[in-house]
Amino acid sequence: MIVLGFFLTAPMGIGYMEHKVLAHMQHRLGPMEAGGFHGWAQLVADGVKFIQKEDIIPKAADSWVFTLAPAVVMVPYIAIFAVIPFGRTLWAENLDIGIFYVLAITAISVIGILMAGWASANKFSLIGALRAAAQLIAYELPLILASVAVVMQAGTLSLVGISEAQHHYWYIFTQPVGFFIFIVASLAELTRPPFDMPIADSEIIFGAYTEYTGLKFAFFLLAEYGGIVAFSAIASVLFLGGYQGIPVIGHLIPGFFWMSGKVGALAFFIIWLRATYPRLREDQLQRFAWVALIPLALADIMVTGVVKVLVK
């Protein structure tokens, strides 16, 4: 229940953050009216607006698949929140294979995007869905390989176990390459700029989501922001010590706030990149994954393995 509640509120916080951060980076104010103080209720207003919109299903669309797709995209991200530890005892489920479960579950949302793109019966949607599938498959590999190096160092797959293993130092100091690969691959998995080729608005309107309106479209947006929270949370657990605080003053503040702070900081970083980098071209994007990131991740695993054996 708490997990579901968190899933429904945190993405709205990130959405508001994106509005404001992007606006200020572009020397604008962003939402200022809704709710009074600096437009804090903008996302609530957006939600109400989405509910009021007409729910259109195109005549040529495959209505069942079209309707199911938003749920297939969103549910995996809700399921991830079940295993993320927000404190030493604050988690819904401590799975023995935590990180593996997370990586397996995220792979499902690709099917949702393909369903959305195909069922829309629209060439832009189909092109967007195919781009999304190609990108998500390509960047899933570095994502998994980067996590493998961390798992090897921690000696456990459990997310709580990985957080506990970083009691003395965070893994960003021992796995900086892994952290870089993981963040880049997560950006691509979320199809966020600079990896937003699948929804490139100047070429293919809005990719697989072009035909969606109202609540169904809101589901996709929720999945995107939920995805930012989820990937930030996983990156915090894997590389930034999760709920572990910094030495000396770490014990003064509860783990929940450390974890939330790290998630917020990473989400800010992800939004920051959107305001900074232009979109990659499709072939550059694929080449970067297969030629640069995957060999780098494999080398990272090898070095981690050698060091682990030598230190032992």
């Binding site: 397996a104 792979a107 393909l114 998500l136």
Partner: peptide, 15 residues
């Protein structure tokens, strides 16, 4: 099973 079959093989098939 989920990662390999649902996440990879069926996605490639659909693709």
């Amino acid at each position: 099973q989920v990662l390999i079959y649902v996440g990879a093989i069926v996605v490639l098939l659909l693709f």
